[in-house]
């Protein structure tokens, strides 16, 4: 009994310790961050199978150890100019749990991954009303590390249900136009 209890405390603590950790990455010159708990893994850029009739930011699907997951290009998603892939370009596999318990796993192509940083709650400020390149609903807040500002992303919004609904809508639109 005692052992189980201790284990639980440990996992709680580790979760607590990881809660303020963010993985930062680059898109263009801007630095972004996602909660480390939402990152499943980081893999090098693989061949992605394109899907017909999808919006341009949906790069297609890839094989993640036997599971097929969609891959989006975060640059295009945030309406940044497209860029050539470099040696540093990689796919961050993100996961989000919906309120109904379903899990979404999606790959996001980013220019490069920087580091894992501790950003305490006190260092996170609400996102500004304007002056940001990407839609507000994707933003969790602005994290200040040393003298840099990192745009922290709300992963549930970026890859979650609403996003998927939007992709589905875009596919329908393409179909309609084709017809």
């Amino acid at each position: 009994m005692a052992m189980i209890d201790r284990n639980e405390t440990v996992s709680h603590e580790s979760r607590g310790a990881n809660e303020n950790k963010f993985l930062s990455f680059c898109l263009g010159t801007e630095h972004y961050g996602v909660e480390i708990l939402r990152v499943r893994e980081i893999i090098g850029l693989l061949a992605v199978t394109p899907l017909p009739q999808t919006p341009s930011y949906v790069k297609g699907v890839m094989n993640l150890r036997g599971r097929i997951i969609p891959v989006i290009d975060l640059r295009l998603r945030f309406a940044l100019p497209a860029a050539e892939a470099t040696k540093e370009t990689c796919i961050v596999v993100l996961e989000a749990t919906e309120q109904d318990g379903t899990q979404t796993v999606m790959g996001a192509i980013v220019d490069s991954v920087r580091e894992v940083q501790d950003i305490p709650k006190s260092a996170i400020e609400p996102s500004p009303e304007f002056g940001c390149e990407i839609p507000l609903r994707y933003i969790l807040g602005m994290g200040k590390v040393k003298d840099k500002v990192i745009v922290l992303l709300e992963i549930a919004e970026v890859i979650g249900m609403r996003e998927r609904a939007q992709i589905a809508g875009a596919i329908k639109e393409t179909e309609r136009r084709a017809a």
Binding site: T49, L51, P52, Q53, T54, V58, V61, N63, G66, R67, I68, I69, P70, T102, Q103, T104, V105, M106, R164, A165, I167, A168, I171, E175
Partner: peptide, 19 residues
């Protein structure tokens, strides 16, 4: 046959994916 991840989108002409 595997479904195409969580896009939840039915793409006409594609029934799924295979590795």
């Amino acid at each position: 046959i595997k479904n195409l991840g969580d896009t939840q989108a039915q793409i006409r002409g594609v029934s799924g994916g295979a590795i």
